[in-house]
Amino acid sequence: MNEVKECLRNIEQTYKIFQQQQFTFIAALEHTREDAHDKIRPVASIGQVQAYMDHHCNNTTDRRILLMFLNICSELNKLCQKLEALHPGTSVTNNILEKCKLLVSPSNDLSTIRAKYPHDVVNHLSCDEAKNHYGGVVSLIPIVLDCMKAWVAHSEKLPRNFLHNVSDGNADSQKRTQQDVSAKASTPLGPHPATLTTATQTLVSYKDYSQEQNSKHGKKEHLNGTGRNTWKYLNGPWKPPGKHSF
């Protein structure tokens, strides 16, 4: 939870800098929409801003502020994933999280959303700009930040054992994984006889057969040689019959 809070604080700090440059942001959208010949429809999605920057942005100032907006949206999207992984959630926190995920989706229609008090981003626009062009896109980030703060507030009210059990589950899973790795590391190298491949079995059989044949051949020669030598020593050298015979 502390990591989530830290991420949320960092995004808020970046947004404060962006908020101070809202007029620059609107001017960049004006320039890119004009270049895209898209002055009629409102800026209604993150994907639309991305397309303006990629294809119709002609100066570094406009690119910088549009990229800053897109980076904040990207960080909010990543934070949604962290929130989802932190704990299974309740009906309240899950509804808040689903709203956040929908809002930061690149294709979601933002044209009808409006940030309300204490946010004053819409008030900095003219009536025409607020109603027909930029009211939704400037309201996106403050609304999502408010939702994420609400998610954190509700999560902190959950029982301690709720988050503790989730942490224990992750720890047990890591422990089992480490045990499996240790068990594999302690297993002697080389395939178990029961898991030998067909090619390996064939090679082993061939070696056994060769050793058996060599053994038989050597045994035969040994027996033959032993037979000759035994006859020689038991009977002595051959001598013709006669007086020299003993």
Rank of each mutant, 00 (worst) to 15 (best):
G169Y: 01
A27T: 05
G225I: 14
L140V: 11
V181F: 09
R64G: 07
V49A: 03
D120W: 15
C57K: 01
K116D: 08
I46Y: 04
Q48S: 03
P159K: 02
M1D: 06
R9H: 12
N59E: 06
V4D: 09
T90D: 06
Y134F: 11
D168M: 12
S215A: 14
N71R: 10
Y233V: 14
S205H: 14
G190P: 07
T112W: 09
R41N: 12
E129W: 02
L29S: 01
Y15K: 04
I11V: 03
C80P: 01
T24M: 07
H124R: 08
H119W: 09
M1K: 13
V43S: 01
E34Q: 09
F18N: 00
T112V: 12
A130S: 06
C127D: 15
C100D: 00
S105V: 02
S91D: 14
S74F: 07
N235D: 11
R9G: 14
D180N: 14
L189F: 13
A36R: 01
V92M: 09
Q50W: 02
R63E: 11
S210A: 15
K216Y: 10
L189G: 09
G236M: 05
H87F: 11
G236R: 07
E221C: 05
I40N: 11
N170A: 07
I141T: 00
Y233M: 14
D38S: 02
W151Q: 02
T230E: 13
M148E: 03
Y209C: 08
Q19V: 11
G218P: 04
S74H: 13
H37M: 15
H37K: 12
N214Q: 14
H55D: 03
S167L: 10
K243G: 05
N224I: 12
H244C: 14
D35C: 08
A153W: 07
S210E: 13
N58R: 15
N170H: 12
K149G: 04
N123T: 10
